[in-house]
Write a protein that binds this DNA or RNA. Sequence first.
DNA 1: CATTCTTGTCATCGGTCGATGACTTAGGGG
DNA 2: CCCCTAAGTCATCGACCGATGACAAGAATG
Lengths: 194, 194
Amino acid sequence: MTYDDFMDQPKRRDKAATRAKLLDAARLRFARHGFDGTGVRDIAADVGVDPALVFRYFGSKEQLHEEALRVEIPTGLTDDPARPLTHITDTLLHDVVFADWEQFAGEHPLLVMLRSAGRPTIRDQMRQQLCEGYLPDFAERLGGDNPALRAELVGALLIGMGVMRTILNTPALHNASYEETRTLVTRLITALSD
Amino acid sequence: MTYDDFMDQPKRRDKAATRAKLLDAARLRFARHGFDGTGVRDIAADVGVDPALVFRYFGSKEQLHEEALRVEIPTGLTDDPARPLTHITDTLLHDVVFADWEQFAGEHPLLVMLRSAGRPTIRDQMRQQLCEGYLPDFAERLGGDNPALRAELVGALLIGMGVMRTILNTPALHNASYEETRTLVTRLITALSD
DNA sequence: CATTCTTGTCATCGGTCGATGACTTAGGGG
DNA sequence: CCCCTAAGTCATCGACCGATGACAAGAATG
């Protein structure tokens, strides 16, 4: 037992800290088992605290879920209008499909939400993040007729890859390196942006 | 009230018929609200029958779900080895993404399963149908190095389009015609199969 | 009409769920 | 040292869940 563990032993009371711990535990549980598969008692038990605190701090299980899965749209990705689309999709491929989001059990928050897509509120939240956060930047750089549709195809490819790699665990995508996948995806994107 | 309705009135007892009705109702409920969001009481109420019959006929809610969402892999799609991949993806684009599966609330069974992807058994069932039913035929026709990975990219595109169109309801894919989507998808597939 | 098998119903069990409100205890300021 | 506020606990509620087994009623058979 380390010194810090020993200092934590006498259960210091700290609202902000326990709130944060609850959020962390909720992220993991929701990510692994979805909304319906997770109980407030489970989350509270992970933190070692009474389930009633969940409702005191977050109001309801739904609000806890919303706050736990809220994710800031990464800025700085698209602020340079001259940055080519393939660079952006490279980054997204890395962050959405290949990155290890340890706070979300290894998956990107968007994919985590998909696991709870039975709830209409979660579906709406997810569509909003997609349509307002990512797709406009795709469309802006794609050109051609119906750039919105082409942008959604790009989004569909990334979402689908994420689903297959981290939810369904299909073998090829699971074993493929980021590099060899990137070259194929780049080829697809350029084919879409004539 | 028609003559047939009148004949149905005295609740004729017919095991096969009520079993089938339960399966239909289960399909709709599971498709709309997912596994956890559906109760056996709901399904039985749709049919106008006692919930206990679900367990008598199917054993458990899980087995009912499995049987309700079981879907035969369409044969005749890939039995001609000379049939080009783009023809196959055209068909799949039509059947998986654009077709209206009225028995499944308008969605393809694979997408319906995704809504209940919190359950490990359902995930496994879905991966198996994908990896054994569709992807090998893709890989066989794609060529290049790592055809399995390319095949999974094709699958990812279709799955992602289905998710965005019928689960998230993104506007462009929802409003796009099958034809204009098909030309874009064809371009993507050919770019992948050099 | 009586018997018998099948189809459907009823009551209920044990458990889990989200949520509430009253209670206890820790800890810092007077 | 006491006291008051805030952090955490406890008991419990009402609803719903999947599942079981005993029972009633319809249909087939003689």
